[in-house]
Nucleic acid binder design. Structure first.
Length: 870
DNA sequence: GTAGCTAGCGCC
DNA sequence: AAAGGGCGCTAGCTAC
């Protein structure tokens, strides 16, 4: 084996290879040093020798570097603050020799930073490689730099000299790898080295296959399901060690070879850049994807890792308070709904109100499946719930773990639901999403208010229901949810009566349940209950997606007192369009505006105690501006040039009667002065619905939405929707032309390009008609827009990231949310920094002015929290 | 007990 | 025949 095993000492385990490779861990067995093994001095000396050799002879070479990592659950935990490096592997080509004179040549380096039994051994060896890792002049190639970078930082090592990330290179070349064709080292080397057995060896076997062990069963035999033991255990296991070193050292070699082959592929592809952008960035004809990588994505890779490292400070006290309030609100809403439900379906006392299946059962029992009319939602369905109260059934001695209960519809046992599903899931069952429930319940709060205003003593009618013994089981969980005598519901109403009730509902803002329950108190109660159910779900989402996980320690690092505070998501270039995505946690989907009812964004704060604040800056209408630019749409360009409310201008261009009103001075497009009132109404108030339609169209059309879809959204006829769409295009013929050209492009060549010439492959666009083709053709018109917006954001961030003055002032990028960036820095220089940030964003391409046909407008705020910056 | 699916929903 | 692009995450449920 042409490997130099360098040295020894520290705890340890495993490396994720990026994207989801499941690696469960088998129970840890105690480690014992094999007899006769000596580690320590010798390994450290060898490490020093090799590090010295690199510094003296191989400093100008590019090294592929890889690590194995222990003590981390890569599915849940951020590598910032979690994980220890067990070994390093290095490779810089075959024409080197790390061996001592007289030894066989050694070209692959494998460095044991774990040691055999003494943590100090490994730490000492790692220390010998600090200079190499931190030397900015030695360029390093990584496969998923982010992970290794953060874990090395857990040892106090800050790698520098970032040269390339083979994952980003592979993404740039082809963003559509899926399933087994992933971006893992195994998969990529397997594909790019077809037929080369020396490189391919790894593509066939995963770490789990090689080192996995069946968990021991009770009888002492190995089970069938393989589990990966902790990496430190494998690495120290005398029987596995050699195989492990072989495996792990190969990663660096594979990364190196992959880099070479990907670079060649990228160099072989000339890209089409938007001409003014090419001019601004000095990108000459013949510019290749490799040039693109070097100019944009390589430095971007480094920047993203710095952002991840910086992390966002989170105010956990604020979240804890939000949690208490949210839980109280949710409890109230849940009870309100569940009392109503269990009055009609006794078993509903046991139900889980956040279960889609159970809600479907209550509201839609007995209805047909839209895809397969021979299937119906059973009249009664059994569910289980945890037996938390330890209820013991009659004749039994022990409490069962679960209580089984059967739900029928709220209209009574064996009664088919009178509701017509207005929306179905892809599998054909009635959807119970918020829009559906909302249409059943009516306007938020309306029914409940009406209920409280009823003249008789039945204000708290739901609370007054007579309790009865439930023959079906216990209701110890919450006595307030005890079953009640189901009120009689008269379902035998005439169509005339129904029509009257429906009109009454429409007039008052009640939902469809009002008529379905025969109106009156019963109808109002049903609406109010489902209204409450909507609230339960909304609060549930806020709690389980945001408020709770943000308080965990999996994604946080700790402050000097050891208190978790900064949150480090991972920022990935892993989308089809070139947008970023954020994971663990996803900080790009935190609730905003009115959805943020517990002010989660207030928890994202600057380090105020240390004199910091935030700058939040975002592009206004970035995608629409880029559409105007690439399509060279006169009307849109003009509208942006004139400024003001873009959607109002769109409405103005679409409807003659609005134009008339404006021309006659009956209405104003906008009013700048906030201190005074406009003399006549504003367009956005006078023609609210027209403006709303224009706004929806502005967004939808870029996504390729059809008249059919719009008709559903607007709840209008297909003809009317078609007419609206035609109106939109009538004012913007260039957009239609451009979209057709893009579709044609995709159909003919199988790809489309963004502003800077990134390509998205769309092979399905070249196939004959199918569902997949439809999707590809919509992507063909959306990707150049969404992808170009991503290009602009990338270029702007690079400009911000390398701005010398911003650095001097101490400003750091923390997060990007597609068209928005967040920075943190010292309060006293906030205004100066803000100007710079805005300038970088408005002139993202090498700082050149007026590159695009349309100006890029940026609005920004300085505030201590994300919430306040909006 | 876990894996994979379905449904739903947060953001731009 | 379907009918708006791009993401990540959670929960419930079923099948293994």
């Amino acid at each position: 084996m042409e490997q130099s095993t360098v040295a020894a000492a520290q705890p340890a385990l495993q490396e994720e290879e990026l994207e989801e490779q499941e690696q469960e861990q088998a129970p840890r067995t105690p480690y014992r040093t094999p007899p006769g093994t000596t580690f320590g001095q010798r390994e450290r000396q060898e490490a020093a020798r090799v590090a010295q050799l690199i510094a003296s002879q191989y400093q100008s070479r590019w090294f592929a570097v890889d690590t194995e990592v222990s003590d981390i659950d890569v599915k849940k935990e951020s590598p910032c603050g979690h994980g220890r490096v067990t070994c390093l592997s290095l490779y810089c080509g075959d024409n080197v020799n790390f061996a001592l004179p007289g030894e066989a040549p050694k070209r692959q380096l494998w460095v044991d930073t774990l040691g055999m039994d003494d943590e100090e051994e490994g730490a000492a060896v790692m220390e010998e490689f600090r200079v190499f890792l931190e030397d900015p002049s030695i360029r390093k190639i990584w496969h998923n730099y982010s992970f290794d970078r953060h874990v090395l930082a857990n040892h106090g090592i800050v790698p520098r000299g970032f040269g390339a990330d083979t994952i980003h290179m592979a993404r740039l070349l082809d963003s559509s790898r899926r399933g087994t064709k992933s971006y893992s080292l195994e998969s990529l080397t397997g594909d790019y080295f077809k037929g080369d057995s020396t490189i391919q060896q790894r593509s066939k076997t995963s770490m789990k296959e090689l080192f996995g062990k069946g968990a021991l069963k009770k009888d002492g035999t190995e089970g069938k399901v393989k589990k990966l033991p902790p990496i430190d255990e494998i690495q120290r296991d005398p029987e596995q060690r050699e195989k492990f070193i072989d495996y792990s050292a190969f990663d660096a070699k594979a990364t190196f070879k992959l880099y070479e082959v990907l670079r060649e592929h990228l160099q072989g592809r000339v890209c089409q850049i938007n001409p003014p952008v090419a001019l601004a960035c000095n990108m000459r004809p013949g510019w290749t994807m490799w040039d693109l990588y070097e100019k944009f994505w390589q430095p971007f890779g480094g920047l993203l890792v710095d952002m991840e490292r910086a992390g966002m400070l989170v105010d956990r006290d604020h979240l804890a308070a939000a949690q208490i309030q949210a839980e109280a609100d949710q409890q109230e809403a849940r009870r309100f709904f569940q009392r109503w439900a269990s009055a009609r379906v006794p078993a509903a006392q046991h139900m889980n109100v956040t279960s889609v299946a159970q809600i479907q059962q209550l509201l839609f029992a007995g209805v047909q499946n839209a895809k397969d009319p021979t299937c119906i939602l059973e009249p009664g369905r059994k569910f289980k719930t945890a037996n938390v109260d330890g209820f013991i059934e009659e004749g039994k001695k022990l409490a069962r773990k679960h209580i089984e209960f059967e739900l029928h519809g709220v209209w009574g046992p064996n009664k088919k639901s009178p509701l017509k599903p207005e929306q179905v899931t892809p599998t054909g069952w009635p959807a119970v999403s918020v829009p559906v429930l909302r249409s059943l319940a009516g306007k938020p709060g309306t029914a409940r208010k009406a209920l409280s205003e009823l003249p008789d003593s039945s204000i708290s009618s739901v609370d007054d229901i007579d309790l009865v013994e439930d023959p079906e089981g216990p209701w110890l969980n919450d006595p307030e949810l005890a079953p009640a005598k189901a009120p009689m519901v008269n379902l035998e109403v005439t169509t005339a009566e129904t029509a009257k009730l429906e009109a009454e509902a429409a007039e008052n803002g009640y939902g469809k349940l009002y008529a379905a329950f025969g109106g009156g108190k019963d109808g109002l109660e049903a609406c109010a209950a489902v209204d409450a159910l909507c609230n339960v779900g909304a609060i549930d989402t806020l709690l389980s997606n945001f408020i709770l996980p943000l308080q965990g320690s999996e994604v946080a690092t700790r402050d000097v007192q050891g208190k978790p505070n900064r949150i480090h998501c991972s920022l990935n270039i892993n989308t089809e369009t070139g947008r970023l995505s954020a994971r663990r946690p996803n900080l790009q989907n935190q609730p905003a505006m009115e959805k943020d009812r517990y002010k989660v964004r207030k928890a994202f704060t600057a380090d105020i105690a240390n004199g910091n604040t935030l700058i939040v800056a975002d592009y206004s209408q970035l995608e629409l501006r880029l559409l105007a630019h690439v399509a060279e749409c006169k009307s849109m360009l003009e509208a942006f040039k004139l400024g003001g409310d873009f959607h109002s201008r769109t409405a103005l261009g679409m409807y003659d009667h609005i134009k008339e009103a404006i021309d006659q001075g009956k209405c104003l497009l906008e009013w700048e002065d906030p201190t005074s009132k406009p003399p006549v109404p504003l367009l956005k108030d006078m023609f609210k619905s027209e403006r709303q339609k224009a706004k929806v169209l502005n967004f939808s059309i870029a996504y390729g939405k059809t008249a059919h879809g719009l008709a559903q959204d607007f709840k209008t006829s297909l003809d009317e929707a078609k007419q609206t769409v035609e109106r939109w295009y009538a004012d913007r013929p260039e957009v239609l032309k451009w979209q057709q050209a893009q579709r044609m492009n995709a159909t003919k060549h199988g790809f489309v390009s963004t502003l800077i010439g990134r390509q998205r492959q769309l092979p399905d666009a070249m196939t004959s008609s199918s569902k997949a083709k439809g999707h590809a053709l919509r992507a063909a018109i959306n990707t150049p827009i969404q992808g170009s917006a991503a290009d602009v954001a990338t270029a702007a961030m690079l400009a911000i990231g390398r701005h010398q003055r911003l650095r001097e002032l101490g400003w750091t990028l923390l997060l990007q949310v597609h068209d928005e960036v967040i920075l943190e820095g010292p309060k006293e220089s906030a205004e100066e920094a803000q100007k710079i940030v805005v300038d970088c964003m408005e002139n993202p391409f090498d700082g050149k002015r007026d590159v695009l046909e349309v100006a890029l407008e940026v609005s920004s705020n300085i505030a201590d929290t994300w919430y306040e910056a909006k």
